[in-house]
Amino acid sequence: MSGLLVFLSQVVSAALPVALAALGGVWSERAGVATIALEGYVLAGAFGAAVAALATGSAWVAAMAAMALGALLGWLFATATVRLRANAIVAGVAVNLLAAAGTRVALKVLYDSASNSPPLPLGASSGASVGIAALRELAASPALWMAPLLGLASHVALARSVFGLRVTACGENPSAARSLGVSVERVRTQALVLGAAIAALGGAQLTLHQREFVAYMSGGRGFLALAAVILGRWTPRGAIVWAVAIGALSALETTLAGDDTMVPRAALALLSPAAFRALVQALPFGLTLLAVMGRLGRARPPAALS
């Protein structure tokens, strides 16, 4: 029972940042703009959350500030790609570099450190066992409660609302949308800003969980999220399901990491424990490759995605 609680907490804490980033990715890719920039949004969100939490001592204000900073970065990205028609991949790489360098400069200027922010003034939770303490800690994070709400809202909005349908139209056939009087530029910009804000909330989760900002702490979660977007076939539900699957893989790898006896006997016949763990780590990317090759059912990206 206790082991199960620990595992559950590990899955949730690994999946949460990826799921939020993936949800943000769905919004922007459904509008027809490739978002390699998710990694940058996560990192910027993590930093924004730290600044706000240090200033106010509130986890909720931290989450909002992360979303605001993400939205700002998303607006920059939208200006470059939608208005100025820059290549989305190049602009996305630029956003990632900007977030990595910008957070380090700000860290130096604001907190005179090359590596981390001061600890956040948030109360620590505790519990009778490791599993309960870990779950309580997660429950104290706004991101845990906002993620399902945002997922549900995104699902309904993309399928039913006027704005959601327009986003999809801009991603599938922008010239048809334009001929019906939809401002493709405006809809895409709105979708990119919204997506960036949601993705940045994933970064806030990292900072709140770690109780400080650490340079480069996004650690490739934005790219894992991109894998979840593709595997989930550009739907909010699919992206979240795959983010949770990636989280479960990560929790599995973490559990196996310290204990070679937990590695399945069958796998050991072929691989060393270290090779098995590396395989588990690489699995999401391998599956993504299969998905884009069309080997995992039909993976049809939005037609105008570029």
């Binding site: 620990v6 590990q10 340079a215 702490m217 490739g220 973490t254």
Partner: peptide, 20 residues
């Protein structure tokens, strides 16, 4: 090299160890 800059991963590994 990013394995030296991933505190969230460090927390997950340590949690698994402490739990064991």
């Amino acid at each position: 090299p990013s394995a030296f800059k991933d505190p969230e991963k460090g927390a997950a590994l340590a949690t698994a160890q402490y739990a064991s």
